[in-house]
Computed example of a mutant assay.
Amino acid sequence: MNEADKRMIRARLTEALENLTSLHSEDAPLSLENFADDADYASQLTAHTMTLALKERDIEKIRRIEKALERIDSPDFGLCRECDAPIGKARLTARPDARLCVTCQHERESGLPACA
């Protein structure tokens, strides 16, 4: 992976990080209020649970992006953590925080043994 590729990936990671952090910078605290109707309460509880799940997902994305930014200048950036093969420019362009090549990611998701 050359330096121009790393600059492009760093820019994409930085932009994604800025978008995620600005998305949640002005979030109001979540709270459940008292409702006279059980259906209204259930609806509010469902919305509350969904909001929490989405926040947790975004927090995990932020962590992955920050870790990718930390390791982008290391010699092993862009190498698969499972098989040490290059991850590939197209995959890193699409998903700059990727830590596995397409083959190893597919094997992990399908439950197959990792590539050699």
Rank of each mutant, 00 (worst) to 15 (best):
N34R: 13
G88H: 14
L20G: 03
T14D: 13
C83G: 14
D76P: 02
E60T: 11
S22A: 06
K89M: 08
T51P: 01
D58H: 10
K89N: 11
R91Q: 09
R71K: 10
H24I: 07
S25C: 04
N19A: 06
A16I: 10
A36M: 06
E15D: 14
A11V: 01
M50Q: 09
P96G: 09
S43A: 09
E60K: 08
H24W: 13
C101R: 06
A47W: 04
T46C: 00
T14N: 15
I72K: 10
D73R: 11
R99P: 03
K61M: 05
H24T: 12
P29E: 15
P96E: 04
C101N: 10
E18F: 00
Q44R: 05
E26G: 01
N34F: 15
S25E: 01
I72Y: 07
L23A: 08
E70Y: 03
D97A: 14
M8N: 15
Q44C: 03
M8L: 15
T49G: 02
V102K: 11
L20F: 06
R12E: 14
T49F: 04
T21V: 08
A85D: 09
R99T: 03
A28R: 04
L20R: 05
K61G: 00
L54A: 04
S31I: 12
P96T: 00
Q44N: 02
P86C: 07
